[in-house]
Design a protein around this nucleic acid. Structure first.
Length: 588
RNA sequence: GGGGGCGUAGUUCAGUUUUGGUUAGAACGCCGGCCUGUCAAGCCGGAGGUCGCGAGUUCAAGUCUCGUCGCUCCCGCCA
């Protein structure tokens, strides 16, 4: 018996033909006499029919069929009478009258039903992932991911990119995320690190003259998980020589456009809008703003600085800022709702959330009494107050204000239904600062990574005012998710050394860690730059899913464990011995 | 490392606070019977529980206390 069709392709045109289908018993409707079974494979469903009047033996055998049995059937394609057509199925015009049944395998009763709208905890789904992956919706996600990958490859191949593999066993580097380490058996006491990204290898490939490189590649970062973060994840990694920012952005736009056309048949408008980092923070509080709705932050520091409300004025005098967010028409928020929002911003270290309810001729607000009429007018104008509005204020250090209100903005966007879920809103955020100051370690850190090129005119600032140095880095943001980021790289070793030094590394350190890069840069490195996309996040958004776990066949739990294999696990003494490792258990 | 939510039948939940108290319920699924046109088939019947785990308080714990494990969302972290 050999299958002739899949379960989603037969139609009225096939009526009268003999076919062989194979798949899983999706649902069984046993009428005592006639038995209907929905046969399922990855493509869809076809109804097959066992009729005792026509095939008594086969019908008898069909009584034993249960959910998820794997069967093969031979039969005739029959048309269904008009009132029995099932419009919900693509194959709903026909059914197969079975003449031969082969039970290929039986199955335990599944732990949950194999259908899209199940209400099952993720723990159960992950424990039985092979069953979960049978659900049409998850299958569709995995297939969508495949299609996206193919669209990426086709596009990049057509544009002269070469797919080149880079090592997975590589070198641990300072900076960045925690590394996953792999002990070396042949070099006792020494370790490889799994790559956080192929960053340096792709730069070396540019030095080697490959000019355009890409790879859909696994990356590893030993950090805590989130709905959109797994310890191993996949990047669409690209690098190009002889290019500037605009070149990388426009090739990226072309690629994303191709993916959306191929996968969703959606025509995206390119180029995507651009926003500088400074403007993004100013208007939206975050460097990955969700632009599907308006609602912008307004900086009112200059107005409140001289005003009578000491809390606000003092913050501004100490180098902080006060920003406002106008929740249009939300005057009806209850005390509890406002308290909840205060709790919401507290997560981002905001110590309070001041508010004003704007009425026809007055403000209802705990802070109204501190402002003169002139100041009120100035605030009203700056914030665009109208009767019915509810205004929120956060006063603190800029970082706190922006994060608190930026996230509050996203929160209100959802709460107030300001978001069109069908929209795909892309933008580029550009002109990132090269560095930020790490208060804990008391030193500068690369915002992007240490190989990002500063703007040439800003290089002198490295010595005098490093935080003012802007970088040729760019992030691509979709609906508030950072789906990719890249930069033009430093291709001159002198500049690279300057940056390493600014990051607090001495010559010995950066020579031992990055000597191979510096050496390559001295050997005729072309100007180059690139970008990496978070393929899981992109797939998640293409599928409309809330978590990347829904687009990864075998994801890990929040404790970075695999529920199927029970990885990670302890290992044998022999294995440890071979690797020259000793495990010390520390009691806490 | 920290904060929130969750853990009771195969699954999703109710019961836990207020009030610790007989035999822990429902739905779906499962099993059996009836049933020849369903497509979430229908009707009748039935089975199914280490209340995550471990201590403690108590005459008595799903319920109270402590600890612990797991899942999840977030903060920190993620160049």
């Amino acid at each position: 018996m050999r299958k002739t069709h899949h379960c989603n392709e037969l139609s009225a045109a096939d009526i009268g033909n003999e076919v062989v289908l194979m798949g899983w018993v999706h649902r069984r409707r046993d009428h005592g006499g006639v038995i209907f079974i929905d046969l399922r494979d990855r493509e869809g469903l076809t109804q097959i029919v066992f009729n005792p009047d026509l095939e008594k033996t086969v019908h008898g055998k069909a009584h034993d069929l249960r959910s998820e049995y794997v069967i093969g059937i031979r039969g005739q394609v029959e048309g269904r009478p008009g009132d029995m057509v099932n419009p919900k199925l693509k194959t709903g015009e026909i059914e197969i009258l079975v003449t031969e049944l082969k039970i290929l395998n039986s199955a335990e009763t599944p732990v949950f039903q194999i259908e899209d709208e199940i209400d099952v905890s993720e723990a159960v789904r992950l424990k039985h992932r092979h069953l979960d992956l049978r659900r049409p919706k998850i299958q569709k996600n995995i297939i969508t991911r495949h299609k996206a990958g193919m669209a990426v490859r086709n596009y990049l191949n057509a544009n002269g990119f070469l797919d080149i593999e880079t090592p997975v066993l590589t070198k641990s580097t300072p900076e960045g995320a925690r590394d996953y380490l792999v002990p070396s058996r042949v070099n006792p006491g020494q370790f490889y690190a799994l790559p956080q990204s192929p960053q340096l290898f792709k730069q070396l490939l540019m030095v080697s003259g490959f000019e355009k490189y890409y790879q859909i590649v696994r990356c590893f970062r030993d950090e805590d998980l989130r709905a959109d973060r797994q310890p191993e994840f996949t990047q669409i990694d690209m690098e190009m020589s002889f290019v500037g920012e605009e070149d990388v952005m426009s090739i990226s736009e072309g690629m994303i456009k191709a993916v959306f056309k191929e996968v969703l048949d959606k025509d995206l408008k390119v180029p995507f809008p651009r926003l500088t980092y400074a403007e993004s923070i100013d208007r939206f509080g975050l460097d990955k703003p969700d632009m599907r709705f308006a609602l912008e932050l307004k900086n009112v520091s200059d107005i409140v600085e001289g005003a009578g409300f000491k809390v606000f004025a003092d913050v501004v005098k100490k180098g902080g800022m006060v920003k406002a967010l106008n929740a249009k028409g939300c005057i009806g928020f209850s005390r509890k709702e406002i308290d909840d929002l205060t709790g919401f911003v507290a997560v981002y270290r905001a110590r309070g959330l001041a508010w004003i309810k704007v009425k026809e001729n007055e403000w209802q607000s705990p802070i109204a009494k501190f402002f003169t009429d002139d100041e009120k007018a100035a605030l009203a104008e700056k914030i665009g107050m109208e009767p019915g509005d509810l205004i929120f204020f956060v006063a603190d250090q800029p970082r706190v204000v922006n994060e608190a209100l930026g996230h509050l903005r996203n929160h209100l966007g959802k709460k107030l239904n300001l978001i069109d879920e069908n929209e795909y809103n892309f933008l580029w955020v550009t002109h990132f600062p090269l560095l930020e100051y790490d208060e804990n370690e008391k030193r500068f850190q690369a915002l992007h990574h240490p190989f990002t090129s500063p703007y040439e005119e800003d290089i002198p600032l490295l010595a005098t005012d490093p935080l003012k140095v802007r970088s040729a880095a760019y992030d691509i943001v979709l609906n508030g998710y950072e789906i990719g980021g890249g930069s033009i790289r430093i291709h001159q070793w002198e500049t690279q050394e300057k940056v390493f030094k600014t990051l607090g590394m001495d010559k010995e350190t950066y020579e031992s860690k990055f000597g191979f890069l510096l050496s390559a840069l001295r050997d005729g490195a072309p100007p180059h730059g690139g970008i990496a996309f978070g393929f899981d996040r992109l797939a998640m958004l293409l599928c409309g899913e809330p978590s990347i776990r829904d687009v990864i066949a075998f994801p890990k739990t929040q404790k970075a464990a695999c529920q199927l294999t029970n990885a990670p696990s302890e290992t044998s003494k022999e294995q440890l011995e071979e690797l020259s490792l000793r495990v010390r258990k520390i009691k806490v």
